[in-house]
Amino acid sequence: MKILVADDSRVMRQIVIRTLRQAGYDDHEIVEAEDGADALAKVSSEEPDLVLSDWNMPNMSGLECLQALRSAGSRVPFGFVTSEGSPDMREKAANAGALFLIAKPFTADTFTEHLDGVIA
């Protein structure tokens, strides 16, 4: 299984990848994207099985990336990992087709709770 991790912070991408491993998802291929536009391009070129994306990024936000993917017909499973988890944002995420929204700070248990059933 291939997982695309999109975050403009390299440190946060590493923390997300580390947390995936701590949660037991350590045998999956990881691809990194540094903003929403990069993630959009890499969904086409890398064909990941899951996208884990930050919300607030330069160039293209995570929400704009998800909306562009759905407009183009992509059904790739998509979840947010973001520093904001307000009810308004959760609603926007769900309406755009996101499977879940994990608010930072998170733990390995948070990942397990949201990803079990999504990651085979």
Partner: peptide
């Protein structure tokens, strides 16, 4: 990124709607 996480959670505790900068 630490400021981003702390700021995002402070924002969530404040009345909205608000936007968070980079």
């Amino acid at each position: 990124e630490i400021a981003n996480v702390v700021g995002g959670n402070v924002k969530a505790a404040l009345p909205g709607p608000s936007t968070l900068g980079l």
